[in-house]
Design a protein around this nucleic acid. Structure first.
Lengths: 167, 167
DNA sequence: TAACCAGATGATAGTAATTATCATCTAGGT
DNA sequence: ACCTAGATGATAATTACTATCATCTGGTTA
């Protein structure tokens, strides 16, 4: 299995491209193109750090001293909704524990957050063979499969808009 | 790639086995075997729901009306430390965002929480072919590789105890 | 088996990330 | 220029979790 750290140099051009398309994508998503939103997506695309909301807030504040932290949270969330960003920390708002300590992964229903264990021996085997990854020493891994469970209406999947996390 | 939902029927015997070994494992980990800890691991092993701390608290409270929620949080954390449980929601205490919306996965340094993007086209391809998983309809997935980065001393890896999350 | 003490627990206050609320403002269409 | 749905800013509220600390107890030792 080929695992490849994404080259940092690709970020500049990628960000530039995304930025030029941003206004159009906003309108396609039914969103107004506000200076705050532009500043936030720009800060996000300009960072390779997978920043938290407060880091984006700090960065954006330099150009927009009046911006509110709530706007940053809201906007990041909105960007994820329209597919312009993603949360690295998917689908979980509070800690969930698992008594099963044999190697396994998880399927999570994106709607009701139900979790089921899955075993993928081949993935485990493949990753076990990968002890180095650039400057990282691999310790373990965890695959989270996002899914819709039967109860949450996988059938009318197209109709289901992204659900909101409950806290 | 074989993906296999873990059979629920396996949980009973598995829990029984783990429970009989629990006292020994505690002592091996240098922990006192308290009734609270027994009740918590029992509740965790008895649940297939990947419960949150408050659910464990509610379950344990029936037998131990005086138990404190803080104890439940602490104990679950401790159980993870000695390898008797794991967090489904690994390594993240607050949301981290990513402007890269091309399909990719992440390596996370378990110590400093630095995140880098990785591409694993073969994994993506294989999962793309898997649209059903038992009662789940697959939407997407995200692999998180746990690692130590150079700065965090991958060299003396053995010496590094599990780090605590900072909030 | 009694005494001891490191570590565990319970009660509660504190923290921090995120969300809710709501008055005000503005993007973008008319 | 004007209107209005939706966006923002200010701030309060929520909630998951951690810190603190006095009290208690498992398990070792005398």
């Amino acid at each position: 299995m080929e695992l490849q750290l994404v080259n940092e140099r690709r970020r500049g051009p990628y960000a530039a491209k995304r930025l030029t398309e941003f206004a159009a994508r906003c309108r396609r998503g039914g969103l107004a193109v506000t200076p705050q939103r532009l500043a936030i997506i720009e800060a996000l695309l300009g960072s390779g750090e997978h920043p938290r909301a407060d880091a984006i807030f700090a960065a954006v504040r330099m150009q927009h001293p009046h911006i509110s932290l709530a706007t940053v949270h809201r906007t990041l969330d909105t960007l994820c909704d329209i597919g312009e960003a993603r949360k690295v920390t998917t689908l979980h708002d509070s800690a969930r524990y698992d008594g099963n300590i044999t190697p396994h992964h998880h399927v999570v229903c994106v709607k009701c957050r139900r979790i089921r264990d899955i075993e993928i021996p081949r993935l485990d085997r493949l990753l076990a063979g990968q002890s180095e990854l650039g400057e990282f020493t691999v310790l373990g891994s965890s695959l989270e499969i996002h899914a819709l469970c039967e109860d949450c209406g996988a059938k009318r999947a197209g109709a289901n808009r992204t659900m909101k996390a409950r806290r």
